[in-house]
């Protein structure tokens, strides 16, 4: 505790999700992904950030710093099953006239079902997308390039991150979907191989899971290890008995081999703890 106090200079540090419970057991690889996913500033989608660090007022000539405070964006749980390409729902107000009261309004992305094709997985996937997603795919010359080049903070949805993990795992295993076409397999692997350099194998295995999923994985791992550690006493005793029996057999064999059974003395026959004969 003393060392903790020295680290924080005596100030109380509120424990975060990685400081308590199962979260504390998560590996460094997952923490790195989580940082990239949740704690990185995403690309501005719904507003145009101002460039530069200071600006001068045209009228008064005053200089003010430029502070780009992003618009709060909502991501409903459904977006985890779709590919929204960084878009979200904006909750706010509209003023529809000079003498009108402000009216609450939701700006919702236009969703439609379309197909994306992953070259590494060699699969057409039917998903719900926004037009921005399709445009981004075309800008990156393909779905795989889009996923592999875009950081987790911009992909956002669990579906996109899970697909990215699957693609990275397939690349690691040398594109198993093209097993029957070795030429094509080599071509595809060469095309996307350089993306692997940014990750270690452990990081790939922990990429793209939500915090709850990652905790569940750790918990399941612990449970499995505990189960393996517990051996029923039945099995232990059975093994001991078998050993004893084997030892006894050997003894008898040895005795029969060399003959001469030990002459039983009459003293052996006396059992001092036997049943008392009542007179």
């Amino acid at each position: 505790m003393a060392s903790q106090a020295i680290k924080t200079l005596g100030l109380f540090k509120k424990p975060g999700i990685f400081d308590k419970g199962v979260g504390a057991l998560l590996p460094e690889a997952y923490k790195k992904f989580y940082k990239e996913w949740k704690l990185t500033e995403p690309t501005a989608v719904h507003f145009i950030p101002e460039q530069g660090s200071f600006k001068r007022d045209d009228v008064t000539g005053e200089v003010h710093p430029i502070q780009n405070i992003p618009l709060p964006v909502l991501y409903p749980k459904e977006h985890n099953f779709h590919l929204w390409g960084g878009e979200g729902i904006i909750q706010g107000f509209q003023v529809r006239g000079k003498k009108k009261r402000r009216v609450p309004h939701f700006w919702v992305p236009n969703l439609r079902r379309s197909v994306v094709y992953s070259e590494v997985l060699d699969k057409h996937i039917s998903v719900i997308v926004t037009e921005r997603t399709i445009n981004l795919i075309q800008e990156h010359f393909g779905f795989d390039h889009y996923l592999l080049k875009t950081p987790a903070c911009d992909l956002k949805s669990i579906l996109a991150l899970g697909l990215k993990r699957k693609i990275l795992q397939d690349l690691q295993n040398g594109c198993p979907s093209y097993v029957n076409k070795p030429d094509k397999q080599k071509e595809i692997h060469d095309r996307y191989r350089n993306y692997l350099s940014a990750y270690t194998p452990d990081e790939i295995n922990w990429y793209g899971y939500s915090f709850a999923q990652a905790c569940r994985m750790v918990q399941e791992d612990i449970n499995k290890k505990e189960e393996e550690a517990i051996v029923p006493l039945k099995h232990v005793f059975r093994a001991q008995l078998i050993d004893q029996l084997k030892a006894a057999d050997l003894e008898i064999e040895e005795n029969s081999k060399y003959g001469e059974p030990k002459a039983g003395s009459w003293l052996n026959k006396i059992n001092p703890f036997g049943k008392k004969h009542e007179t």
Binding site: T40, F47, R132, E139, N194
Partner: peptide, 25 residues
């Protein structure tokens, strides 16, 4: 912690021009 994004992305981002096909407010 605002992590440097250039460090995170494995290769240089080809899309220099930000693409917006959505509501810009």
């Amino acid at each position: 912690n605002i992590v440097n994004k250039a460090f995170l992305s494995p290769t240089e981002n080809v899309v220099h021009q930000q693409l917006r096909t959505t509501y810009v407010l």
